[in-house]
Amino acid sequence: MTSQMADVIIRASALSKTYSVKEGRARKQVQALRSFDLEVKTGEMFGLIGPDGAGKTTFMRILCGLLLPDSGQVAVLGFDPVTQQHKIKQDIGYMPQRFSLYQDLTVEENLNFFTDIFQVPRQERSARTQRLLEFSRLGPFSKRRAGALSGGMKQKLALSCTLIHTPKLLILDEPTTGVDPVSRGEFWDILGELQQQGVTILVSTPYMDEAARCDRVALTYAGQILALGTPDQIAGQFPHQLVRIFTRQPYDVAAALRQLEILHSVELYGDHVTVALDDPVTVVEIIRKNLDKRGYSYTSIDSGQADLEDTFVYLMRQLSQATQPELGNDLDSHAK
């Protein structure tokens, strides 16, 4: 391995993967990955952001050798996971999206099982198990069956089991989906500690606040990468000015504004509507007039800085309107 190679821990180029899915009686081809290119550098925390069906899980499974790509090249730690799967197994830890430990085994038994099958040296076993129990704050629950743990504790146990062999690369598929906010915070604190210890982390998440904690993120949608860079860089890619209209009638306001062709995009959120536009001074006047004329009230119209989510939603909208116009309406509502 050359020093330049060592810098890149995951390298994927032009990866494609198509599934055949049964839909009623017909079989439908679904493209999970379309010519997917990505490089992850050693030591970084890399986030894959995107809605369900973006291809995040497929990509991770290909990295672990669990799926074969239809075409394209992939290298993990310098090896091909397709043909050299056995060479990377000792160095990667993979946490599937679904809780995949044994529910009828206790915390301790699950940990012991993975200690066994990763063949952790005998003299290190109890030290490592103890450290992981402490690290995951699961010590007091070591005799509890995994099935009886809370969602957050389950995820911490799953993480502990993927850490038992001290992998160099962690691949985590939506580790915090369905976990309460406090546990999510704790989980990400743990990931931060791991990164400081030198572990490279590839993590997928649907949560933008988590994405912001990554060194770099890739925005993925429909098997493609829409944008790639640090969270700030991506937020900076927003090509227009952004204005947020806070209102009690966000749904009506959004519907009204969508008829104004001067606006580049209108996105509906819980308590406000976000609008992409150029030349805010004139356009905001037009918006005000329009809303007043229709009698919609609003508390404020603020021009603001586009964040990661704004950019992502904007890019996603552009792409879906370009390729599948009928899909545009699926993106109408975003919970923030």
Partner: peptide
Amino acid sequence: ETGTLEQILVTPV
């Protein structure tokens, strides 16, 4: 069915 196989398949077993 429970997905545990997915987890074991990435171990050296």
